[in-house]
Amino acid sequence: MDSLREVVRDAAGDPVFLAGALVAAGAAVVMVTRRNPVYAALWLMLCFLAVAVMFLKLHAPFLAAIHVLVYTGAILVLFLFVIMLLNLTTKELGEEHSPPAKALAGVVCGLLFLFLAASFLKGASDGAPFRELETVKVSVGTSKLTIAPEDWGGVSHVGSELFGTFVVPFEIVSVLIVVAILGAVVLAKRKL
């Protein structure tokens, strides 16, 4: 209980976090309950923008930028494009589960949230703020970089990690995306 009080006090003292979290959670709840997929996509966009604010709060400016570009810029536009392409009528939207089934799903997910939150609170040793960022040294190939605390999580820092330590996974993701593009083209073709 003490750790819960600590977290509530911590969140209440941080208006940017509080506003972002309320917008993200509220938009998410509205999104999953909309029947019209266009409205759901637009609410999801609002939720993603609030998540980008969380990334900025967590000192991840580069991630926040590519989150807006990839999620709100690419993925949601793809959703809206497909919704437009399908041009669904009200009948074609199909039926939904009965209210008891939805209530059961709500109870299951509420329990899931309580379980996750309880385990996080149990594991939380303190509500202490994050430690101050320190200057880090990174090396890519033969060149060495010094990352100042204010540049932490910026383009040069993330880029040096991505193309240094994680260059092989990065290349594998590019192969995955090429395969996905080919798969999407083949699947969506009219005649195989």
Partner: peptide, 17 residues
Amino acid sequence: MTKYLILSALLFSIGAY
């Protein structure tokens, strides 16, 4: 720290719903 984890659990649960 924990407040971010709880927000992440909340979004995950809403998505699961």
